[in-house]
């Protein structure tokens, strides 16, 4: 009688089940909380939005982008980071810049590139074309396009590509 009671209460099987369940929960919780939040996709979209707002905001083209004759200004390309309030500089001598962005202005009629701007580390550009599962170690890309109408009535298709790498900060 005593043995039966003991078996029922402190049964090895019962403790084995408890341990298995507890270990499973601990593993699942660690897998969830142990992983960093991956915010690179959101970050790349924010970057693309910021550049889009810098180029064309409220139906008005940035006055520093075009000359009064409607020609793209070379100095906008040279001073792109400053003009759009961007700063990609990172701490550390051998730390690579974790961003890349490109802006392409295509003619509405011919869809030919009329002007383009690049900034950041273009080594990550190839990551955007790799479509594989488990690609969290690759940089995250975001594309945005919209039409821009200048004061002179010319229409351009603007294509923005923004890339954020930051693999170490966002993956384990």
């Amino acid at each position: 009688m005593m043995n039966k009671k003991g078996e029922k209460l402190i049964s090895v099987y019962w403790f084995a089940i408890l341990v298995i369940v507890a270990a499973g929960i601990v593993l699942m919780v660690n897998a969830y909380y142990g992983n960093s939040y991956d915010v690179r996709e959101v970050e790349s979209r924010v970057l693309a939005d910021k550049i889009a707002n810098c180029i064309y905001f409220g139906g008005k083209v940035n006055p520093l982008l075009l000359t009064p004759q409607g020609v793209f200004r070379e100095d906008f390309r040279d001073l792109f980071m400053e003009r759009c309030s961007l700063n990609f500089s990172v701490e550390g001598e051998f730390t690579r810049i974790p961003y890349y962005t490109s802006v392409e202005f295509l003619s509405f009629e011919s869809l030919r590139s009329q002007f383009s701007i690049f900034a950041g580390n273009n080594n990550f550009k190839s990551d955007c074309n790799i479509k594989v599962e488990g690609n969290e170690k690759l940089a995250k890309c975001s594309e945005k396009e919209f039409y821009m109408k200048t004061d002179s009535g010319k229409i351009y298709l603007v294509k923005i590509l923004s890339i954020v790498e930051k693999t170490n900060e966002n993956t384990n």
Partner: peptide, 27 residues
């Protein structure tokens, strides 16, 4: 208790808050 402690751990909160603040500043 284990689950609550995990969710309120310093490392976990530091990671999420630093990213949230950086994204807010970016926007």
């Amino acid at each position: 208790i284990f689950l609550v402690n995990q969710g309120n751990g310093a490392t976990f909160l530091e990671d999420s808050y630093s990213k949230q603040v950086a994204l807010l500043i970016d926007s």
